[in-house]
Design a protein around this nucleic acid. Structure first.
Length: 583
RNA sequence: GGGCCCUUAGCUCAGUGGAUAGAGCAACCGCCUUCUAAGCGGUCGGUCACAGGUUCGAAUCCUGUAGGGCCCGCCA
């Protein structure tokens, strides 16, 4: 148990000792301080108890600390302001903790005691369409969440719930049958870009041509009933899209198990049947619906979740319900995380409500929608290309890499006596460019819309990937220069200067930050931590010579360098970002 | 009309009940004969949209108002 957990317990014991057993469940209101002059932690319980006990808050605080035994970890507690109890770590404790951290492959972060089977549903592009900017956030945020949970020791199933079923295929196949029948019988008869164009035309036809609409709907029914020719055409389209998606996933280093909507097709009738049994299902205007609480349409009428369309077809609500049942019943999921845009909040709220009412989500299973905001251009509107089209993900990533390459070339040209190989420049540019896109996205609170700016994400100043990667590279530079083998260091730490103490305390917080993100699923908190770590390292680097220090201080500082680098490497890896030894 | 989200420094954003509200960028001033200056230190900058309420204590919780975004029956 770490010192903070111990402190929590000891505070509770002190409360009981001071005021009696009825205070056993009183929260000591322990929190990190926001200002180092107040120490490292503060307990705010005295103010909240003062009225109840009929005493002055400062006196309550005094009675607590008189009975508080934390000398193993903390200096003598102090009372400040209206009754804050301030606690400061002992340097001895910090030094010992850092040494333990240094000796451990996982930086002292133990795997969870309660591993869960977790499903992270993310990315989920549509077959027959190219991946575009709309898939960026789900893919990046979902991957990060999966990485964090995996590191914690959970059994994570990463599912790509691709849109490989439904009305869009009816449209597309009907249209292709007319204009490019070869695409339905032989692989790669047309390329994916053309397929996207065909899709748009098919959609346009669908919206204005009633006969076409009818034909498309019939095609969906054929597909759903397994008609051979339609099914073969569908498989061809899926294969082609899948290969295109894989190019992007390789570029982004993302592992995913594809399990599209079609997978749940055999389980859809049972969803309808079981909803009927529970009495939740109602027929309305020819469609099978479940009416949900708290949702109304523009006319103020209750809003249904449509389970089966009037033409007998199923839609995504049905699929999502079937998926919940399958994931809980067969996959054994204890936590299901859906990483999709905030626009689907209503949909998921409805689906979860219906699944709960039907009794399909046991108390022990957590089902959660992790929403995120839109990607906007610098004009604050939805990100588009100059010609007004949706931005292809491939183009977006390529541009980030190209732009960073230009920055890098300029930088190298500026520095005297610096020559780099083409291979080096290409590799650095690709890693930094793509990492910058990922980091920019992850470093924002996901719930708000996010303004996409190449200039900001590629800047070498501020809370950006280049800044963090540079901090890491600086440490590696020390090891090269001093010919240091970090893994062989053994030393008694000596935290002397303020910048060393500040860095040391920050290093010890990594565990808590990861635990918090695993819980709340806000990756920007991990980014914030890593940014502050980089800043604190740079301050230390500026103030404390490492290689020129006398032993044993030199080795002590090398340990701080090593721990910083390893923390950065671990933290960035959880964001899906690799490090560079040199840049 | 309903639901969800947002409104914090000139700009982009942190801050999910605690002390004088924080970063980064931009602007200005310093620091390279010393481990990568892609760095560091400092200055400037805020009626936390507005009004009530709860609380010892509110940017944070509750209610209302204004502005913005997204969604609202057979697309996902």
């Amino acid at each position: 148990m770490n010192a903070v957990a111990q402190l929590q317990t000891r505070l509770q014991q002190a409360l009981v000792a001071a005021f009696g057993p009825e205070f056993a469940d009183t929260d000591p209101l322990l929190a990190a301080t926001n200002n180092p002059k107040f120490g490292d932690y503060q307990a705010n319980v005295a103010m909240s108890l003062a009225k109840k006990l009929g005493k002055q808050p400062r006196q309550v605080a005094q009675e607590v600390i008189d009975r508080l035994e934390v000398a193993e970890w903390f200096e003598t507690p102090e009372i400040a302001g209206p009754g804050f109890i301030n606690l400061r770590f002992k340097t001895d404790y910090l030094q010992a903790s850092l040494q333990a951290m240094q000796a451990d492959d996982r930086l002292g972060i133990a795997p969870t005691q309660t591993p869960q089977r977790v499903i992270v549903d993310f990315s989920s592009p549509n077959i027959a369409k190219e991946m575009h900017v709309g898939h960026l956030r789900s893919t990046i945020i979902g991957d990060c969440i999966a990485r964090i949970l995996e590191f914690q020791g959970h059994d994570v199933l990463r599912l790509n719930h691709v849109g490989d079923w439904g009305t869009q295929f009816g449209m597309l196949i009907t249209y292709l049958r007319e204009v490019a029948p070869a695409a339905l019988t032989q692989a790669d008869a047309i390329d994916l870009g053309d397929l996207v164009a065909f899709y748009k035309k098919a959609k346009a036809r669908f919206d204005e041509d009633e006969a076409f609409q009818q034909a498309a709907r019939e095609e969906v029914v054929k597909l759903q009933s397994g008609a051979e020719e339609t099914l073969r055409a569908w498989k061809l389209l899926c294969d082609q899209s899948r290969r295109e998606f894989q190019v992007i996933y390789d570029l982004l280093d993302i592992q995913l198990e594809e399990r599209g909507e079609s997978f749940y097709n055999p389980y859809l009738p049972a969803v309808v049947a079981d909803l009927k049994t529970t009495g939740l299902l109602v027929e309305d205007q020819g469609a099978q619906c479940v009416f949900t609480e708290g949702f109304t349409n523009k006319e103020g009428q209750p809003l249904p979740l449509i389970i089966q369309k009037s033409d007998g077809g199923f839609n995504y609500a049905t699929t999502d319900l079937a998926a919940i049942r399958y994931r809980i019943g067969t996959d054994g999921a204890q936590r299901i995380i859906y990483v999709t845009d905030a626009g689907q909040s209503n949909h998921f709220a409805q689906v979860f409500q219906v699944a709960r009412k039907a009794g399909w989500i046991p108390e022990t299973v957590e089902v959660v929608h992790v929403p995120f905001g839109l990607v906007q251009g610098e004009d604050g509107k939805r990100l588009k290309t100059r010609s007004g089209d949706t931005v292809r993900l491939r183009d977006l990533l390529d541009e980030a890499v190209e732009r960073f390459r230009a920055n890098l070339d300029a930088k190298i040209a500026e520095e005297k006596n610096r020559e780099e190989t083409e291979e080096f420049k290409a590799q650095v540019s690709e890693i930094v460019g793509i990492s910058a896109v990922k980091y920019a996205d992850l470093s924002q609170n996901r719930t708000s819309n996010y303004i996409f700016s190449y200039d900001k994400m590629l800047a070498d100043k501020g809370n950006t990937a280049p800044y963090m990667l540079y901090a890491y590279a600086r440490v590696q530079s020390i090891s090269r220069k001093g010919d240091i083998d970090f893994s062989a260091l053994t030393a008694q730490l000596q935290l002397q200067k303020e910048s060393e103490l500040i860095l040391a305390k920050h290093l010890l917080q990594l565990e808590d930050v990861i635990a918090q993100v695993g819980e709340d699923l806000y990756p920007n908190r991990l980014c914030q931590y890593l940014f502050e770590l980089s800043q604190k390292f740079n301050t230390f680097y500026d103030a404390c010579p490492v290689l020129k220090a006398e032993e044993p201080l030199k080795t002590s500082r090398l340990v701080l360098c090593d721990l910083t680098a390893r923390s950065l490497k671990l933290g960035l890896s959880l964001l899906g970002i690799p490090v560079l030894e040199r840049m």
